[in-house]
């Protein structure tokens, strides 16, 4: 590893894993330390999911949400992915000196609304104000606890050959929205963030079947990064059909202009689900009736061969590797 922390270490790809393995895991290792979205803990017989997430999005407001909504969705979704009903959250704010009070109020209002929708209570908090320039606007960290529902045992280690791979909607919208909102490349498109609290979505899936092997919230690094993580953790191959991957038109256009792969753009309201093939049609039908998952699709299957790899069946019917997640997303022009 290079000796300084770079932006690539925070991009959610392989450099992030390197940092976690070589620095954090090296010092924090214990049996409960998780590689999933949330740790699974048994406390006096109760099975709980426990997780935390920091949010530093710039700009703090974007089409489809703001950092407040995001901070609730991120933690609620991590809990939901373990089959846990989110119960309580805490939130910690680091606010830059001079931050407008009305903006703060907007952010907190969004948190209130999103928490209500997800059925979760915010029960503890912390506030710090940092000097001008020490943080960019406002940073929020949320921590959450949820109760794992009877019969649910999802984990990134449980994908099995012949599982269907499902995404709960079109990919890459949040990352594309933020890229456009920063207005660095002069591009416009009608794209709104997919940011959404997904406990309701997971609940309806569970009501359809509990025979689900993996649920993972595709956030930073996008669906592609999640697929590589699961291929590695479960030691299986994944074969995708390029043409089945749902991508919104605007996202496709922006990616075309900048030479980016939509599978590696962040989502904030998309689940990647691995379930036995025979459960997939019913799950898909349930998902397509949901508010946040109308564009759900089966995008591929799990294979025994090529463990640790994600293979794409391309438009000409040939097979090629999905390039593994890289570092910082850089627009490719020449």
């Amino acid at each position: 590893m290079s000796k300084k922390v770079t932006l690539a270490h925070g991009a959610g790809g392989r450099q992030t894993s390197e940092l976690i393995d070589q620095v954090f895991k090296a010092h924090f290792a214990n049996p409960e330390l998780t590689s999933d979205d949330a740790a699974v803990l048994t406390v006096d017989g109760a099975k709980l999911a426990f997780t935390t997430d920091g949010f530093i999005v710039s700009p703090a407001e974007f089409p489809g949400g703001n950092i407040g909504k995001l901070s609730i969705c991120g933690t609620v979704n991590d809990l939901a992915c373990m089959g846990a009903k989110p119960l309580y959250l805490s939130c910690a704010f680091v606010i830059e000196e001079g931050f407008p009070m009305d903006k703060l109020e907007e952010i907190v209002t969004a948190m209130e609304k999103t928490a209500a929708e997800a059925g979760v209570k915010i029960v503890a908090g912390d506030t710090k104000v940092a000097g001008k320039g020490q943080v960019d606007g406002v940073f929020i960290t949320t921590t959450g606890i949820g109760r794992i529902q009877e019969g649910m045992e999802t984990s990134g280690f449980k994908a099995k050959p012949k599982d269907a791979v499902i995404v709960s909607g079109d990919v890459g919208r949040h990352g594309c929205t933020i890229l456009l909102a920063r207005n660095e490349f002069g591009i416009e498109a009608d794209v709104t963030s997919d940011c959404a609290p997904l406990w309701g979505t997971v609940k309806t899936m569970m009501d359809t079947t509990k025979n689900i092997h993996v649920i993972r919230d595709a956030t930073r690094g996008g669906v592609g990064t999640v697929l590589y993580e699961i291929a590695e953790q479960s030691n299986v191959g994944i074969r995708l059909n390029a043409q089945d991957i749902p991508v919104a038109d605007g996202v496709r256009g922006v990616c075309g202009m900048l030479g980016l792969e939509p599978l590696y753009l962040a989502c904030e309201g998309r689940l990647v689900i691995f379930a036995p093939k025979e459960e997939a049609p019913a799950l898909l039908e349930t998902l397509r009736q949901g508010k946040y998952s109308a564009n759900a699709a089966i995008i591929g299957e799990v294979t025994e061969d090529m463990p640790g790899r994600v293979v794409m069946r391309t438009e000409i019917g040939a097979e090629t590797l999905l390039p593994p997640p890289g570092g910082e997303l850089l627009p490719r022009i020449c």
């Binding site: 002069g186 591009i187 416009e188 605007g250 075309g256 202009m257 022009i333 020449c334």
Partner: peptide, 27 residues
């Protein structure tokens, strides 16, 4: 060598064109 993007001309003004490629627009 050179990523090229096929796009449709939407408007033209002073030597600049707004083009549209699958819903992404740029001058």
């Amino acid at each position: 060598m050179c990523v090229g993007l096929p796009a449709k001309v939407v408007t033209l003004k002073n030597g600049m064109a707004v083009v549209d490629a699958s819903g992404a627009r740029r001058e």
